[in-house]
């Protein structure tokens, strides 16, 4: 699905008509020339004016296309291959190396998977999608299949980077998430934490695990 990150720039689309208007206004007007007889001009005229019109038409199309491209560039189009319907729930599970920390008899990762399972089960496996994030965000799947994939994953090995920004971008691009769960130890850089909760129109719930994070929700 094609979406525009800066949809307000689409108001500039009528500018694509400017080349057409300029073309019509600046078109060279023919000088009227009274001639004794146009009998010998007919054949030559048919051939030459046809070429002339085609060239003008091509130029006009190119100019209009250039303006359209500029407007689209400003509108920042984005192709969303995964387009969840409205009212979706997104569960972002931290899959970074820090999630290997031990919590009593378990690890933070196992606890995160358990939390994700309980969320998915509480919603009957519908309308929820599971994402993994460390250096990048990856869709694990929707509902129980996504949960199964989560459970089959090995222990995380990659370190996390700018997770807050990534989650923020993903939520903003999807646009249709109504509720977002973040399950993590929140061992992120400080700026990431702030960005991760900067979308007021989406209800966000954070589950903090392990020693580093503390109770993230209490800080909000």
């Amino acid at each position: 699905m094609l979406k525009f990150l800066n949809a307000s720039a689409l108001w500039l689309l009528p500018l694509a008509g400017v080349p057409l208007i300029v073309h019509l206004l600046t078109r060279k007007k023919s000088v009227v020339f009274y001639f004794p007889s146009v009998r010998f001009l007919k054949k030559a005229a048919r051939r030459k004016t046809f070429n002339f019109n085609i060239l003008n038409l091509i130029l006009l199309i190119l100019r209009t296309f250039a303006v359209l491209c500029l407007v689209l560039f400003l509108a920042r189009p984005s192709v969303v291959f995964f387009a969840p319907p409205s009212g979706e729930t997104a569960i972002f599970v931290d899959y970074s190396y820090s999630m290997n920390q031990r919590i009593k008899d378990s690890t933070a990762w196992r606890d995160a998977v358990d939390i994700a399972r309980s969320i998915v089960e509480s919603r009957g496996g519908k309308d929820c999608f599971l994402f993994l994030f460390n250096r990048k965000i990856e869709l694990a799947g929707g509902g129980f299949p996504g949960l199964d994939k989560l459970q089959s994953l090995p222990a995380p090995v990659e370190i996390s980077s700018a997770c807050g920004n990534m989650i923020a971008d993903a939520v903003r691009k999807a646009q249709d998430f109504k509720k977002v769960f973040i399950v993590s130890d929140f061992c992120w850089e400080p700026s990431g934490k702030k960005d991760a909760v900067k979308w007021p129109e989406v209800e966000t719930v954070c589950f903090s695990l392990g020693r580093r994070a503390g109770n993230y929700m209490s800080g909000m």
Binding site: K28, S30, V31, V32, F33, F35, P36, V38, L41, T49
Partner: peptide, 25 residues
């Protein structure tokens, strides 16, 4: 020049670019 030739007798109009059509004419 870009001319619109008008026949003085019949009033028939022919748009033409004189430089391009001069040879054939």
């Amino acid at each position: 020049g870009n001319f619109l030739f008008v026949d003085k007798e019949t009033g028939e109009k022919i748009p033409i670019i004189a430089a391009k059509s001069a040879g054939a004419y």
